[in-house]
Write a protein that binds this DNA or RNA. Structure first.
Lengths: 144, 144
DNA sequence: CTCCAATCTGGAGTGCGCTCCAGGTCAAGC
DNA sequence: GCTTGACCTGGAGCGCACTCCAGATTGGAG
């Protein structure tokens, strides 16, 4: 139901066992339950946090900032505004990141197009191979 | 015209002086010209490479792979196929990266919406503040 | 009860991509 | 010629986010 062994939590969250322990050690994940013998038991709530952490990590939030968010959440409902602000600020960064990625992706495709339009060697034997400038005309002077 | 001092190359490429030196040291940038006294002179061609490196770095290509690409380009025109393949493969990674980023961005917006729909404290004095579960209902159980 | 895979701890180590430093050299302006 | 700011080198150091390790413990299956 709502108690997962470390290996199960790792499987479900996609984080490694070591990373789960690490997240607890630095206080990102707090108050993880234990058996009498000291072994961790992850709840659905913990899993919920891990899903959030995955979202934030995948979008490039530094761990220190996630810690801050988690601490605020633990501090109670009166920090909702600050948490909201933190997420909104992060979203702006992510939007910039997406725009940059798209721009550079377009750039990359442009370069790939250059290779495609080239008289490739792939289709059978090749004609005359003209001696090229040293570093590669494709890279030194990209088309456009 | 086509000879830039290190500081100028740094300014134009957006890389730091140290990074330019580092890129040369590891062989990413090769055959950079020098004055009689040993100071670097970057050409337009070098700048072209730097623009490419920026594109590849921004899209997450590891430096080792960029080195490989640069070496292939230096090896001559007969490596065009391999370079093409390398870029195409990288583009696939980038597409995955973009999809993931979009997915997690949507997730993030979802979470922000949660805060927006909340009876915020911002608009003037707040009504009853019901005691919340410890970790924050917004994070522990995200809406959706 | 026995076994063994899973888990525990504290702390050291890793990989990446720079970044900084000391101690010297170069070169353009006055 | 002198000053001064930009530049040089080799090498050490850094920040991040893990990842690995040794040696001990736990706990479910048979």
């Amino acid at each position: 139901m709502s108690g997962y062994a470390p290996s199960e939590a790792a499987r479900r969250s996609g984080f490694s066992l070591d990373t789960l322990r690490y997240y607890e050690k630095i206080g990102l994940l707090a108050d993880v339950e234990r058996t009498a013998g000291g072994q961790r038991i992850f709840t659905d709530e913990d899993l919920g946090w891990l899903v959030l952490f995955r979202c934030l990590r995948d979008t490039g939030m530094p761990i220190a900032q996630m810690c801050r968010y988690a601490q605020l959440a633990r501090d109670g409902e009166h920090t909702a505004d600050e948490r909201h602000e933190l997420l909104r600020h992060h979203a702006v960064r992510v939007e910039e990141q997406m725009r940059l990625l798209q721009r550079q992706y377009d750039h990359l495709r442009e370069k790939i197009r250059f290779y495609e339009q080239l008289p490739g060697t792939t289709p059978g034997t090749q004609a005359q191979r003209r001696p090229d400038r040293r570093p590669d005309s494709a890279s030194a002077r990209p088309p456009l």
